[in-house]
Write a protein that binds this DNA or RNA. Structure first.
Length: 257
DNA sequence: CAGGTC
DNA sequence: TCTGG
């Protein structure tokens, strides 16, 4: 199937930017999961060739309903930021994804204090448990030591407990409609979810485009270029506006990759 | 030493 | 503090 792209999309930047850990490039095909469906992608000019997920699922996954250039403009006109202006040019087509919230949550819980390579391996292990990413019900039936055997370390307890809570009715999707602070608070009530993981889940799966997750890389960037060490979320929204999360993604990408 | 949390 | 690379 073919999709005509009206929006800038760079698959290499987007699928390699630390938002998702279950995509692989084989030759010139990207392979991963969209909405639980194994999907192959290849881009040629403005044509996106795809197999697996449906067209509307792909449009949603890459948030192709949002105009990237308008987002750039919105951030630049508000901030006049020269660093971001150059990053938007350099990494044009780097998009923020709209992932499945449950998978996103577990992915970032097991990402803490780990290298990208380790994170990828852990997620691959989860996928190998059954066909596709295991549900909260499935994971809640495993024990903490099962997760330790998978190499999750101290995060095992978080995964076990969070799975139990979600399996017994905690609805991630209902958080979507909440106010920012309330949504973050709700997520942080889950074991293993702090400020950083919570904001990653909000930005990458729940459409909170103003979420500005702060990890060590962003901390360094903010210190170096903006002379900020505290209250970074507030600063980011004031400076970059409602799409601060996009600014975060470009700053992160330029620092790490 | 690695994209934190409690 | 855990633990893989």
């Amino acid at each position: 199937m073919i999709l005509k792209l009206k929006e800038p999309l760079n698959l290499d930047f987007t699928l390699n930017s630390g938002q998702v850990f279950n995509w692989k490039k084989n030759n010139d095909f990207w392979e991963g999961f969209v909405n639980g469906k194994k999907t192959k992608l290849k881009k040629k000019g403005a044509n996106l060739f795809f197999k697996g997920a449906s067209k509307s699922e792909i449009l949603s996954f890459f948030k192709l309903d949002e105009s990237l250039d308008e987002i750039y403009q919105s951030i630049l006109s508000k901030s006049g930021d020269l660093l971001l202006e150059s990053l938007f040019k350099k990494y044009r087509g780097l998009r923020i994804l709209r992932q499945e919230p449950w998978e996103c949550l577990i992915s970032f819980i097991i990402s803490q204090n780990s290298s990208i390579k380790t994170i990828r391996k852990r997620i691959e292990t989860l996928y190998s448990l059954n066909d596709g990413f295991p549900s909260a019900e499935t994971l809640s039936k495993l024990s903490e030591s099962d997760f330790r055997k998978m190499g999750f370390g101290y995060r095992s307890k978080y995964v076990k407990e969070t799975s139990e809570i979600v399996a017994s009715g905690f609805d991630l999707r209902k958080i979507k409609g909440r106010k920012f602070d309330s949504a973050l608070e709700e997520l942080k009530s889950l074991p293993g979810v702090g400020d950083k993981v919570g904001k990653c889940v909000m930005l990458f799966s729940l459409d909170f485009n103003e979420a500005f997750p702060v990890d060590v890389h962003i901390e360094n960037v903010m210190k170096k270029f903006y002379h900020r060490e505290r209250n970074i979320q507030e600063f980011a929204v004031k400076r970059f506006g409602a799409y601060a999360g996009y600014a975060q993604q470009y700053l992160f990408f330029s620092d790490v990759f």
